[in-house]
Amino acid sequence: MNARPYEIIEGLLYSEDHFWIKEEENGVCVVGLTDYGQHCVGDILYLEIDGEAGDVAAGRSFGSLEAGKWVGGLISPLNGVLREVNAALSDRPGIINEDPYGAGWIIKAERTGDFPAGLMDGAAYGDFVEEEIESEGAE
């Protein structure tokens, strides 16, 4: 068992809730769901972001998504101020399934303070996913 069937990109930061962060030069962080994360939830049918602007807090929900009949929270991997929501997802949230690290980005937030402890680089996240797959006996 390994994480190889799922794409993991070096240079990004990853949370245990399967969200990735890409910090841009201006300090704004792009946040999305990882390839493994989108695989676990399945075809995403609806996505709702709480409010157009405001704070996001690490470990707290900033919106919800629905796949199948399952509603799950979008769990922020960082503390920051919401700057932009990917408007394309409102009509076609399935873009997250098709291109989780590209067109399927979810929000952009301006980071406040340091990144929270516990974020992983690509290699560590790969190990984390492998462990999760093994512990559940999943494919």
Partner: peptide
Amino acid sequence: MPSRPEELY
């Protein structure tokens, strides 16, 4: 409980 939704269902 499985964490993958479809196994959980």
